[in-house]
């Protein structure tokens, strides 16, 4: 029975073709969201691990082509673009945008293994970091965000 359901799901998924990934602004991602994800998510034991679904590549973290790029060379276009695609993937949601894993999992009370040493999840809704990502995900143009210290 399960195999039948799975087959139906795959078929309907392939035939519908109507689903689209969220496509927030790439420029804002590069300028604001990408450094933020690098800072708070891209650690090699976390989302700097290439085995993860959501991965962030960049300098000082996981390099896409370590044979070419030095550890602290500026991020390559491929790294930013690929990080953007993975971030978009983590933005798929059903219902409210806040249900997207990218916005939901770093918050308190959700399944996220990345708790800090005090047992806290990474972000809170009140934090500028989360709010900035949420605005970006909702398609709101981002202003200068120097206060994030990125």
């Amino acid at each position: 029975m399960r195999s039948v359901v799975a087959g139906v799901l795959l078929v309907t998924g392939c035939t519908s073709g109507a689903a689209e990934l969220p496509a927030p602004d790439y420029g804002d991602f590069r300028a604001v969201v990408y450094p933020l994800l690098l800072r708070d998510c891209g650690f090699s034991q976390c989302h700097g691990d290439p085995e993860r679904f959501f991965v962030v590549w960049g300098p000082g973290r996981l390099r896409l082509e370590p044979d070419i790029d030095g550890p602290f060379d500026p991020p390559t276009e491929d790294e930013v673009w690929l990080s953007y695609q993975r971030t978009r993937s983590a933005l798929t949601y059903e219902g409210e945008l806040d249900d997207a894993p990218l916005l939901q999992k770093p918050l308190e009370g959700h399944a996220h293994r990345g708790e800090d040493v005090w047992g806290r999840n990474l972000w809170q809704r009140s934090e500028p970091s989360w709010q900035e990502v949420a605005r970006w995900a909702a398609g709101v143009p981002l202003a200068e965000t120097e206060e994030l210290g990125l």
């Binding site: 799901l9 795959l10 519908s16 689903a19 689209e20 990934l21 993975r86 978009r88 798929t92 059903e94």
Partner: peptide
């Protein structure tokens, strides 16, 4: 749900 799954798979 299926379309979401498909979209995620496509992105990955």
């Amino acid at each position: 749900r299926a379309s979401l799954l498909a979209a995620s798979l496509a992105a990955v």
